[in-house]
Protein backbone atom coordinates (compact mmCIF):
# COMPACT_ATOMS: atom_id res chain seq x y z
CA UNK A 1 0.00 0.00 0.00
CA UNK A 2 1.35 3.45 -0.85
CA UNK A 3 1.98 5.71 2.08
CA UNK A 4 -0.53 8.58 2.58
CA UNK A 5 1.97 11.26 1.56
CA UNK A 6 2.42 9.84 -1.90
CA UNK A 7 0.54 11.13 -4.86
CA UNK A 8 0.14 11.39 -8.34
CA UNK A 9 -2.39 13.14 -10.46
CA UNK A 10 -2.11 12.39 -14.10
CA UNK A 11 -3.75 14.70 -16.58
CA UNK A 12 -3.53 13.50 -20.12
CA UNK A 13 -4.77 14.79 -23.42
CA UNK A 14 -5.47 12.27 -26.16
CA UNK A 15 -2.52 11.28 -28.32
CA UNK A 16 -2.35 11.94 -32.01
CA UNK A 17 -3.92 9.13 -34.00
CA UNK A 18 -1.33 6.59 -35.17
CA UNK A 19 1.42 7.89 -32.85
CA UNK A 20 3.62 5.07 -31.56
CA UNK A 21 3.93 4.33 -27.89
CA UNK A 22 7.18 5.66 -26.45
CA UNK A 23 6.79 5.14 -22.70
CA UNK A 24 4.65 2.73 -20.77
CA UNK A 25 4.85 2.66 -16.99
CA UNK A 26 2.93 0.01 -15.06
CA UNK A 27 2.64 -0.45 -11.29
CA UNK A 28 5.66 1.79 -10.70
CA UNK A 29 6.93 2.31 -7.18
CA UNK A 30 9.93 4.38 -6.21
CA UNK A 31 11.00 4.16 -2.58
CA UNK A 32 13.65 6.48 -1.17
CA UNK A 33 14.77 6.45 2.45
CA UNK A 34 12.02 3.97 3.31
CA UNK A 35 9.37 6.30 1.97
CA UNK A 36 7.40 5.53 -1.16
CA UNK A 37 7.65 8.70 -3.22
CA UNK A 38 6.10 7.56 -6.43
CA UNK A 39 3.31 5.12 -7.10
CA UNK A 40 1.87 4.98 -10.57
CA UNK A 41 -0.52 2.28 -11.81
CA UNK A 42 -0.25 3.07 -15.49
CA UNK A 43 1.17 5.94 -17.48
CA UNK A 44 1.71 6.08 -21.19
CA UNK A 45 3.30 8.54 -23.57
CA UNK A 46 3.28 8.44 -27.35
CA UNK A 47 5.30 10.24 -30.00
CA UNK A 48 5.02 14.04 -29.91
CA UNK A 49 3.73 13.87 -26.33
CA UNK A 50 4.70 16.78 -24.08
CA UNK A 51 4.59 15.85 -20.42
CA UNK A 52 5.46 17.83 -17.33
CA UNK A 53 6.22 16.17 -14.01
CA UNK A 54 5.42 18.53 -11.18
CA UNK A 55 6.10 18.47 -7.50
CA UNK A 56 7.99 20.22 -4.73
CA UNK A 57 11.61 19.50 -3.97
CA UNK A 58 12.13 15.96 -2.69
CA UNK A 59 8.90 14.70 -4.23
CA UNK A 60 10.77 12.22 -6.46
CA UNK A 61 10.70 14.07 -9.80
CA UNK A 62 14.40 13.49 -10.52
CA UNK A 63 14.20 9.88 -9.36
CA UNK A 64 11.24 9.37 -11.67
CA UNK A 65 13.31 10.66 -14.61
CA UNK A 66 16.21 8.40 -13.55
CA UNK A 67 13.89 5.42 -13.64
CA UNK A 68 12.56 6.41 -17.07
CA UNK A 69 16.17 6.69 -18.28
CA UNK A 70 17.13 3.33 -16.81
CA UNK A 71 19.68 4.96 -14.51
CA UNK A 72 18.09 3.36 -11.48
CA UNK A 73 15.81 0.39 -11.11
CA UNK A 74 12.27 0.97 -9.85
CA UNK A 75 11.28 -0.59 -6.55
CA UNK A 76 8.25 -2.09 -8.19
CA UNK A 77 6.52 -2.28 -11.53
CA UNK A 78 8.04 -1.98 -14.95
CA UNK A 79 9.08 0.69 -17.39
CA UNK A 80 8.93 0.10 -21.12
CA UNK A 81 10.64 2.56 -23.44
CA UNK A 82 10.35 2.21 -27.21
CA UNK A 83 9.10 -1.34 -26.70
CA UNK A 84 11.97 -2.41 -24.41
CA UNK A 85 11.39 -3.39 -20.81
CA UNK A 86 14.36 -1.66 -19.18
CA UNK A 87 14.54 -4.26 -16.39
CA UNK A 88 15.14 -7.00 -18.93
CA UNK A 89 18.24 -5.34 -20.35
CA UNK A 90 21.67 -5.96 -18.85
CA UNK A 91 23.38 -2.87 -17.47
CA UNK A 92 25.67 -2.61 -20.48
CA UNK A 93 22.78 -2.96 -22.93
CA UNK A 94 20.73 -0.48 -20.92
CA UNK A 95 23.61 2.03 -21.11
CA UNK A 96 23.81 1.57 -24.87
CA UNK A 97 20.00 1.74 -25.22
CA UNK A 98 19.89 4.98 -23.23
CA UNK A 99 22.58 6.49 -25.41
CA UNK A 100 20.72 5.67 -28.60
CA UNK A 101 17.07 6.24 -27.64
CA UNK A 102 16.91 8.64 -24.71
CA UNK A 103 18.11 12.24 -24.59
CA UNK A 104 18.68 13.69 -21.16
CA UNK A 105 19.07 17.35 -20.16
CA UNK A 106 20.47 17.22 -16.64
CA UNK A 107 19.54 19.69 -13.95
CA UNK A 108 23.08 20.99 -13.53
CA UNK A 109 23.94 20.86 -17.23
CA UNK A 110 27.14 18.87 -16.95
CA UNK A 111 28.86 19.87 -20.13
CA UNK A 112 32.31 18.33 -20.45
CA UNK A 113 34.70 21.19 -19.72
CA UNK A 114 37.59 19.62 -21.57
CA UNK A 115 35.68 19.74 -24.85
CA UNK A 116 34.40 22.45 -27.14
CA UNK A 117 30.71 22.98 -27.84
CA UNK A 118 30.80 20.88 -31.02
CA UNK A 119 32.91 18.17 -29.34
CA UNK A 120 30.29 17.87 -26.56
CA UNK A 121 27.80 16.97 -29.29
CA UNK A 122 30.29 14.63 -30.97
CA UNK A 123 30.84 12.96 -27.59
CA UNK A 124 27.13 12.15 -27.33
CA UNK A 125 27.21 10.50 -30.75
CA UNK A 126 30.43 8.62 -29.95
CA UNK A 127 29.19 7.27 -26.62
CA UNK A 128 25.97 6.08 -28.24
CA UNK A 129 28.00 4.35 -30.92
CA UNK A 130 26.45 6.50 -33.63
CA UNK A 131 28.14 8.26 -36.49
CA UNK A 132 26.53 11.66 -36.85
CA UNK A 133 27.93 13.95 -39.55
CA UNK A 134 29.34 17.26 -38.33
CA UNK A 135 26.95 19.06 -40.68
CA UNK A 136 24.02 17.61 -38.73
CA UNK A 137 25.59 18.60 -35.42
CA UNK A 138 26.19 22.13 -36.69
CA UNK A 139 22.56 22.18 -37.83
CA UNK A 140 21.49 21.29 -34.31
CA UNK A 141 23.62 24.11 -32.91
CA UNK A 142 22.07 26.45 -35.44
CA UNK A 143 18.63 25.26 -34.31
CA UNK A 144 19.44 26.27 -30.73
CA UNK A 145 20.99 29.56 -31.88
CA UNK A 146 24.63 28.72 -31.19
CA UNK A 147 26.04 28.38 -34.70
CA UNK A 148 28.66 31.04 -33.90
CA UNK A 149 29.82 29.21 -30.73
CA UNK A 150 30.61 25.90 -32.37
CA UNK A 151 34.27 25.77 -31.40
CA UNK A 152 34.02 27.74 -28.17
CA UNK A 153 35.26 26.05 -25.02
CA UNK A 154 32.30 25.29 -22.81
CA UNK A 155 33.67 27.28 -19.87
CA UNK A 156 33.23 30.43 -21.93
CA UNK A 157 29.48 29.90 -22.27
CA UNK A 158 26.83 31.75 -20.32
CA UNK A 159 24.29 29.74 -18.30
CA UNK A 160 21.71 30.19 -21.05
CA UNK A 161 24.11 29.14 -23.79
CA UNK A 162 25.20 26.09 -21.83
CA UNK A 163 21.53 25.17 -21.39
CA UNK A 164 21.07 25.32 -25.13
CA UNK A 165 24.12 23.16 -25.77
CA UNK A 166 22.75 20.59 -23.33
CA UNK A 167 19.44 20.59 -25.19
CA UNK A 168 21.16 20.22 -28.56
CA UNK A 169 23.29 17.37 -27.17
CA UNK A 170 20.21 15.55 -25.91
CA UNK A 171 18.93 15.44 -29.48
CA UNK A 172 22.12 14.31 -31.23
CA UNK A 173 21.13 10.65 -31.46
CA UNK A 174 17.55 11.36 -32.59
CA UNK A 175 16.08 9.95 -29.37
CA UNK A 176 12.46 8.84 -29.09
CA UNK A 177 12.31 10.22 -25.57
CA UNK A 178 13.80 13.42 -24.22
CA UNK A 179 13.98 13.96 -20.46
CA UNK A 180 14.75 17.38 -18.98
CA UNK A 181 15.29 17.93 -15.27
CA UNK A 182 14.41 21.44 -14.03
CA UNK A 183 15.54 23.12 -17.25
CA UNK A 184 14.14 26.53 -16.24
CA UNK A 185 14.65 26.64 -12.51
CA UNK A 186 17.44 29.21 -12.60
CA UNK A 187 16.11 31.32 -15.45
CA UNK A 188 14.09 34.50 -15.59
CA UNK A 189 10.69 34.56 -17.32
CA UNK A 190 12.05 35.47 -20.73
CA UNK A 191 14.78 32.87 -20.75
CA UNK A 192 12.52 30.21 -19.19
CA UNK A 193 10.01 30.77 -21.98
CA UNK A 194 12.77 30.63 -24.55
CA UNK A 195 14.13 27.31 -23.23
CA UNK A 196 10.69 25.72 -23.09
CA UNK A 197 9.89 26.92 -26.60
CA UNK A 198 13.17 25.46 -27.76
CA UNK A 199 12.60 22.10 -26.05
CA UNK A 200 9.10 21.84 -27.44
CA UNK A 201 10.19 22.87 -30.93
CA UNK A 202 13.23 20.63 -31.29
CA UNK A 203 11.49 17.57 -29.90
CA UNK A 204 8.48 18.26 -32.12
CA UNK A 205 10.85 18.47 -35.13
CA UNK A 206 11.98 14.92 -34.45
CA UNK A 207 8.74 13.46 -33.16
CA UNK A 208 10.24 12.66 -29.77
CA UNK A 209 8.21 12.50 -26.60
CA UNK A 210 9.27 15.12 -24.05
CA UNK A 211 9.15 14.76 -20.27
CA UNK A 212 10.12 17.78 -18.20
CA UNK A 213 10.45 17.54 -14.44
CA UNK A 214 9.96 20.91 -12.77
CA UNK A 215 8.53 22.79 -9.86
CA UNK A 216 8.27 25.86 -12.06
CA UNK A 217 4.58 26.60 -12.46
CA UNK A 218 5.31 29.13 -15.23
CA UNK A 219 5.88 26.47 -17.82
CA UNK A 220 3.01 24.10 -17.01
CA UNK A 221 0.53 25.53 -19.57
CA UNK A 222 2.82 24.49 -22.45
CA UNK A 223 2.40 20.76 -21.79
CA UNK A 224 -0.45 18.48 -22.68
CA UNK A 225 0.36 15.78 -20.06
CA UNK A 226 0.71 16.60 -16.41
CA UNK A 227 1.93 14.37 -13.64
CA UNK A 228 1.94 15.70 -10.08
CA UNK A 229 4.09 14.04 -7.46
CA UNK A 230 3.90 14.61 -3.73
CA UNK A 231 0.19 15.33 -3.86
CA UNK A 232 -2.70 13.23 -2.60
CA UNK A 233 -5.26 15.02 -4.70
Amino acid sequence: MPSPSLWIVAVTTPAEPGAKQVVLVEGLRIVIGGRTLVGLDRWELREHARAVVLGPSGSGKTSFLHVLAGLRAPDGGRVIVAGHDLAELTETRRDAFRGRHIGYVLQSLHLVKALSVLDNLRLAAFLAGNSVPDAELRGLLQRVGLEDRTNAPTFELSQGEAQRVAIARALVNRPVLVLADEPTSALDDRNARSVVDLLLAVTADRGAALVVATHDARIVPFFDHRLELGSDR
Partner: peptide
Protein backbone atom coordinates in the same frame (compact mmCIF):
# COMPACT_ATOMS: atom_id res chain seq x y z
CA UNK B 1 33.17 12.52 -11.24
CA UNK B 2 30.38 14.60 -12.77
CA UNK B 3 31.79 14.14 -16.28
CA UNK B 4 31.97 10.38 -15.85
CA UNK B 5 28.39 10.28 -14.59
CA UNK B 6 27.34 12.42 -17.54
CA UNK B 7 29.04 10.01 -19.91
CA UNK B 8 27.11 7.14 -18.36
CA UNK B 9 23.91 9.11 -18.95
CA UNK B 10 24.99 9.61 -22.55
CA UNK B 11 25.41 5.88 -23.03
CA UNK B 12 28.96 5.13 -21.88
CA UNK B 13 29.36 1.71 -20.28
CA UNK B 14 31.43 1.23 -17.13
CA UNK B 15 33.96 -0.61 -19.28
CA UNK B 16 34.43 2.40 -21.51
Amino acid sequence: RADLALMRVLGATRGL
